[in-house]
């Protein structure tokens, strides 16, 4: 059988991620796209504990642990030191959760992108601080229950909209920005291939469903990821230097269908769901108009 994605595995079994972890698939595919000449930097997050206890490792490439807020700074330094050693052909990849990206790591990410280092920053977006027990992050969507937005009688689900870091990256002039998700590994790996052609900062936001924190059965991780795209909740796009290409859902479904499979949304009533559906429709229209008109931002360099 001809494989639709590279056969080589740079992530080994025996790791300690939960059953059906989407973040693990995200790493597996990212490394298939990057190849073995890669150095990964991971801050505090699920991915800091997934490789197991010392002296275990689960990646066949070097992985550097960093403080929670420091991914952007560390990949800048790794790039510099590899270049000095004549290893410019190595990919430097920051791989951080949504808490480590949208919240605490945002300043070092923004700094690294603004300085224009030749690095990849992958945000694996499981939409909450999962490793510490499902606290809300800036990237948690409107309507979700987390342990810091417990619904209860007062319906204290998250009332703020998701902060979309990919949009922030476009706005600050990053030359390559894309979204991807684990249900479409071919698309994800193709995007990494395109990103590799660009010398400069690259940012990819990967939706990585989490059975533990979204409260759905582990066998549904890929299905939920597919539904996120087909419902328009998580549109897939690729932005390169001013032009954006949006993937239109091939078998569209409603927001209601997407949220109904996940207990983190179990409390939503018809009004809430309609509100989310309207937001989704507006965002899709906005992205398609950007596709037509192009986006003007001051280029970083």
């Amino acid at each position: 059988m001809p494989f639709s994605i590279p056969e080589e595995e740079l992530m080994e079994p025996g790791h300690t991620a939960c059953h059906g972890c989407g973040a693990t698939l995200a790493m597996r595919y990212v490394l298939k796209g990057m190849g073995e000449k890669t150095v990964v930097s991971v801050p505090a997050a699920c991915w800091a504990v997934i490789p197991g206890a010392m002296p275990n490792r689960t990646l066949k490439v070097p992985m550097v642990y960093t403080p929670f807020a420091a991914t952007g700074a560390v990949i800048s330094g790794l790039r510099g030191s590899l270049d000095i050693q004549g290893k410019s052909d190595y990919n430097v990849v920051g791989f951080a959760g949504d808490g480590g990206t949208a919240d605490i790591g945002l300043q070092s990410l923004s700094g690294a992108m603004e300085r224009g280092h030749n690095v990849f920053y992958i945000m694996y977006d499981n939409e909450a601080y999962m490793n510490t027990g499902v606290q809300r992050s800036g990237s948690t969507p409107f309507g979700a229950e987390t342990t810091t937005t417990p619904v209860g009688k007062e319906r204290n689900f998250k009332k703020q909209q998701k902060k979309i870091v990919a949009d922030l990256m476009i706005a600050q002039g990053v030359p390559y920005v894309a979204t991807a998700t684990i249900a479409y590994p071919e698309d994800l790996i193709r995007k990494i291939g395109n990103a590799k052609k660009i010398s400069g900062p690259k940012f990819i936001q990967i939706l990585a469903p989490c059975p533990t924190g979204w409260y759905y059965p582990p066998e549904k991780s890929v299905e939920v990821s597919r539904q996120a795209v087909q419902s328009g909740i998580f549109p897939l796009f690729e932005y390169i230097n001013g032009s954006i290409k949006v993937t239109k859902p091939s078998k569209p479904i409603s927001v209601r269908e997407y949220v109904s499979g996940q207990k983190r949304f179990a409390h939503l009533d018809d009004n809430d769901i309609e509100k989310i559906q309207n937001t989704v429709n507006k965002r899709m229209r906005y992205l398609l108009s950007m596709e037509k008109e192009g986006i003007f931002v001051l280029p970083a360099q």
């Binding site: 080994e12 079994p13 025996g14 790791h15 300690t16 059953h19 490789p51 197991g52 010392m54 002296p55 275990n56 490792r57 689960t58």
Partner: peptide, 15 residues
């Protein structure tokens, strides 16, 4: 410290 033992030593079948 450098971790250099593959996680393959960790059988996860008991999960």
């Amino acid at each position: 410290p450098i971790a250099d033992v593959s996680s393959r030593v960790n059988h996860t079948d008991s999960w």
